[in-house]
Design a protein around this nucleic acid. Sequence first.
DNA 1: ACCTGAACACCGTTCAAGT
DNA 2: ACCTGAACACCGTTCAAGT
Lengths: 229, 229
Amino acid sequence: MSESAPRRRSRASAGLPPITAEKIIDAAVELTAERGLDGWSIRQIATKLDVWPGVVAHHVGDREAVVMAVTDQVIGRIPVPDPDVPWRDWFSSLTFDGRAVLKQYPGVARRLVVVGPNVPSALPTIDTGIKVLLLAGFGDHATEIYRYLLNSAFMLVAVEDDRDSFFPSARADMGRTMAAFAADPTRPGLAAAGAQAVARSEDAEAQDLAFFRLTVERSLDGAEALLKG
Amino acid sequence: MSESAPRRRSRASAGLPPITAEKIIDAAVELTAERGLDGWSIRQIATKLDVWPGVVAHHVGDREAVVMAVTDQVIGRIPVPDPDVPWRDWFSSLTFDGRAVLKQYPGVARRLVVVGPNVPSALPTIDTGIKVLLLAGFGDHATEIYRYLLNSAFMLVAVEDDRDSFFPSARADMGRTMAAFAADPTRPGLAAAGAQAVARSEDAEAQDLAFFRLTVERSLDGAEALLKG
DNA sequence: ACCTGAACACCGTTCAAGT
DNA sequence: ACCTGAACACCGTTCAAGT
């Protein structure tokens, strides 16, 4: 009974390459693509790399540090549009391309909006975007309008992520709830919404994209009103 | 040594009033005001009511059910503005009053935006709001513009909550990051933002409120552009 | 029906000990 | 310096047993 479990040899003595912060973050990015930013645990990253959980803390830091590193990686994949296009086109490109990237990594949009310029990879975009607004004549409002336009678009992606992840039945439930009011004359507002819910037959992603388009267009118009006023 | 721990008498045999779903939800609402919707555990609710954790599941359901009940309660406290005021005033009242309520219960704004009409207490507001937009002449766009205007305002409250809760240093960090670029001629966009960050001396809540006001005003203008177009 | 009390399968973090 | 291996203080959920 004196035989203890055979002690696993260390990675070094087994000839395995050492774990690095980069490998840990890559694994975390992969897991984020598969299950979202709130869908993995430190222990799952460790298992994936065949090390003990403490190793993650040793190389990267606590969970928050890993999440920030993933966020930085993903934001870096969003292309920065050419600064020479008109400001409306610049923001349309950024937000539509950005949405395409962010939807591959659920949960990152929420972080992008919250941490903003604290993520190094976001700085080139911010610099170019504000410059584009200055050239368009927004003057002192350029900074806050930049923030407004980015928020409008990417907060909506964050909401789409949330709906899919922690409340997958929300879309169907909402549709049913609204449709139930389609013929209720005592509640004209809900009846109007219900009638549209009944009529709508597109698939979910097409509806999301249409509302995203509306949101970006309305926000651009809202900014433009300031320019004219 | 044969004396086991004295078995606690049941609530009934001790003459205590029975636990109800209502009491559990009230406790959860209180904890949400103190620590936010993600700041409490089922076990903390149980401790607060002096019962075992399983009791919460028995009366209300799983954690998600408790969260939805809290969300419903809080949304019910947002006053519905008088439907006879002009549409812009109606939405200004709703979003400013709504923000005041939601900021007392961090984390609820996020849920409000995600679950929308699935929360019963939100239905009167939705009905009135869409009706107001129909009367203003938005026609077929009334439903989606309602959603757009509510999202714009309350998604921003959700972001404010997130910043305060899971990243309290974000505001200070951002200010410092931007200020560092104030005199960088190679990055004109960041320099402009940095100069403003340096100049700004208001307290945090005043800045948040100002940006909230801007967001609501821009979104209302964005909606109005559709009316004119 | 309601509640106790324990068990189960997870978490993130920390840290002494080994290599 | 890097990693093992375990310990610690938590989670949410489930459920047999008592009253």
